[in-house]
Design a protein around this nucleic acid. Structure first.
Lengths: 234, 234
DNA sequence: TTCACAATGTACTAACTAGTACGTACTGAA
DNA sequence: TTCAGTACGTACTAGTTAGTACATTGTGAA
């Protein structure tokens, strides 16, 4: 065992903590300023250690950014597993999943910002990542299960699949976090105002359930893509 | 009148064209790389003129970026006025507006990217702009009119206002453009694939109409915000 | 035709910023 | 107690980048 803490309580050496601290500070910095706007010196300043260590552990600014993204995605996937809809009806489960996603996204704005930043860069960094691709989404599997049950019960539309449904839910939740600032500036309404939180959360549930249970119109023709790539679990 | 074209067809002087060309190139550059990632030298290179003229007409990189934003928003507001729903029923008008917005957003990806970039910067630039705030949205007025007619006819829910409805529509449309890259990387589906366009367009219409005409559940309590700012037309 | 001024080009600079050379000290194993 | 290797700090650099000093030319009005 290493003697990390001295008599005065000051740390000597602790590589794990150093790495973790750099990642935490870097997450905030990249989320706040984007990749090009982020400053390696600023990250170093907010750490107990120096810039030298960033390059020692992460090779480059880009390497650091990639690990920030990977850690952020891994965290999200972990949280997704917390939701259990097995005991709920398809309609209630769908609502629970949508509202859970809303709570989750609104309480992790830095993650949403990082995803936005990565989209500005056309996902060039995460497409290089080996681990993010393997990190398959629990949310899709959960949605898929709910969808099958709801369709079997004759309660759901049959022409929307789990991926497009996921896009609908994400769209609503991401927008509230990501476009908060321009929306407020243009329209004078803060989409993340605490007083509105429960209202917006129920609204996304209403929206998704109303859409999926609306059986009165002719089905859409679900597109059959030739180029679509299958994910690794299928 | 100025003699702009010489015998060989080469331009001599044309301040308006110079300004316009800088703005066009700058729009693409900022949309592609963000504010910090954009390079003034690169913008100058793609222009017939030199970097000197950028500073001559726009003062600074920030000044240029602000005018890019202002011009982009002005263009959007112009396009919004093209839609006329006066002759349509509330339900049909609402669907038309949602699907129009989808077409519009998917055909102006640079604008969506600029808005995203501005949100990364917490809208700090457009909040300084004097003209963007005055540029009130036609979309909101159109939505408000449809909402009143639909509510009067007993066809619409009464607990969702024009601004929140606009947020729902925008969310869906913006997400497809803005999050295209990470979505494709993570799930293998391209949200802007041409074969899927008509499907996704009708889906946003279905979603909005289904949500607004779903009268079977108890109303939400519309939040009464004390801090909300009124826009200038009210 | 003249002239004041707007428009433009060239060449430069100060400051910043990612990244590194080099040296030291801590640590655990033998 | 020694020692090899990991962890760390200081001080530096090469290249980039926003911004400018200065000179020049085109242009429309008088």
């Amino acid at each position: 065992m290493s003697a990390i803490v001295t008599a005065e309580g000051a740390q000597r050496r602790d590589p794990e903590r150093t790495k973790r601290e750099i990642l935490e500070v870097a997450t905030a910095e990249f989320a706040a300023s984007g990749f090009a706007g982020a400053r390696v010196d600023r990250i170093a300043e907010l750490t107990r250690t120096t810039k030298r260590m960033i390059y020692y552990y992460f090779e480059s600014k880009e390497g650091l950014y990639l690990q920030v993204l990977e850690k952020a995605y891994a965290l999200i996937r972990t949280v997704e597993r917390e939701l259990d809809v097995a005991g709920l009806s398809p309609v209630d489960g769908l609502r629970a999943l949508a509202e859970f996603t809303y709570d989750h996204h609104t309480s992790h704005p830095d993650f949403i910002r990082l995803v936005n930043i990565e989209n500005i860069h056309r996902a060039q960094h995460i497409s290089q990542s080996t681990i993010i691709h393997d990190l398959n989404s629990t949310a899709i599997d959960t949605l898929d299960g709910l969808l099958r049950r709801g369709i079997a019960a004759g309660e759901f539309r049959t022409d929307i699949d789990a991926l497009d449904l996921h896009a609908m839910i994400s769209a609503y939740c991401v927008f509230h976090v990501a476009n908060r600032y321009t929306f407020r500036t243009l329209f004078g309404r803060d989409l993340l105002e605490p007083e509105r939180h429960s209202y917006y959360r129920r609204l996304v549930g209403d929206m998704i359930v109303a859409t999926m249970t609306d059986l009165h119109r002719p089905d859409l023709v679900p597109p059959q893509s030739t180029r679509e790539q299958q994910t690794s679990t299928e």
